[in-house]
């Protein structure tokens, strides 16, 4: 499906992503005054590599291990009755009982806020965390729900018909953030198909 999109411009390259992730890791440690009972949770698909990168940085800084969970929001999507076929369910797993932990939700792109809403509902069904924070690599605006990130890598002004594509070494074999152009006339239909296939991603119109 990626080949339907043409890259328009690269916003962040490998070096820039590295620096931004390091700064985000520092902000997470600072705002929590340490890492005690801190759990990083990546939202599938590309919130997971972001969470892994943040964990590596935090562990290097603090010289202490941080647990990491993986969250699949598919079953909590608000558009399940309007899309077909059903998106792939890959499952959620947490290494700890989340009660009393401070959770940092990690996702690659914050857009409408609907993914985060689903993630919050999902977390509440699992337990009662002490607090939930949100860390995103890119905030592209156009919120449809009252949701804001606590830690933002880069704020990128976009148009609604653009798609923000984040690629990580571990999932895509390269490392960049780019704004992609959707071919004219495919905007509406392409949006739902793309996001259904991608699982939890908020990069494109959903």
């Amino acid at each position: 499906m990626t080949d339907e999109l043409t890259p328009r411009r690269t916003i962040l390259d490998r070096r820039q992503i590295e620096r931004i992730v390091r700064r985000m890791a520092g902000e997470i440690v600072e705002r929590n005054r340490g890492i005690e009972r801190l759990l990083l949770v990546g939202i599938r698909t590309r919130g997971v590599p972001l969470a892994e990168r943040l964990r590596a940085e935090i562990e290097r800084m603090e010289d202490h291990q941080v647990p990491l969970g993986v969250l699949d929001i598919t079953l909590y999507r608000d558009d399940l009755s309007t899309i077909a076929p059903q998106p792939v369910v890959k499952g959620t797993s947490f290494p700890v009982d989340i009660d009393g932990w401070t959770i940092v939700l990690c996702d690659d792109v914050l857009y409408t806020g609907r993914t985060v809403r689903a993630a919050l509902d999902h977390l509440v069904d699992w337990g009662r965390p002490k607090a939930v924070q949100l860390a995103v690599l890119v905030d592209r605006g156009h919120r449809e729900l009252p949701i804001q990130a606590d830690v933002v890598g880069e704020t990128v002004p976009t148009r609604r018909d653009e798609v923000v594509e984040v690629r990580f070494e571990s999932t895509d074999g390269e490392e960049l953030v780019a704004i992609m152009e959707r071919p004219a006339g495919r905007a509406a239909a392409g949006g739902s198909v793309r996001s259904a296939a991608g699982g939890g991603g908020e990069g494109g119109p959903a």
Binding site: K90, D125, G127
Partner: peptide, 15 residues
């Protein structure tokens, strides 16, 4: 992927 739902405190998803 659905197996874990049985092990949650709230054994239910809104799907």
């Amino acid at each position: 992927a659905f197996e874990e739902v049985a092990h949650r405190p709230i054994k239910k998803v809104p799907t």
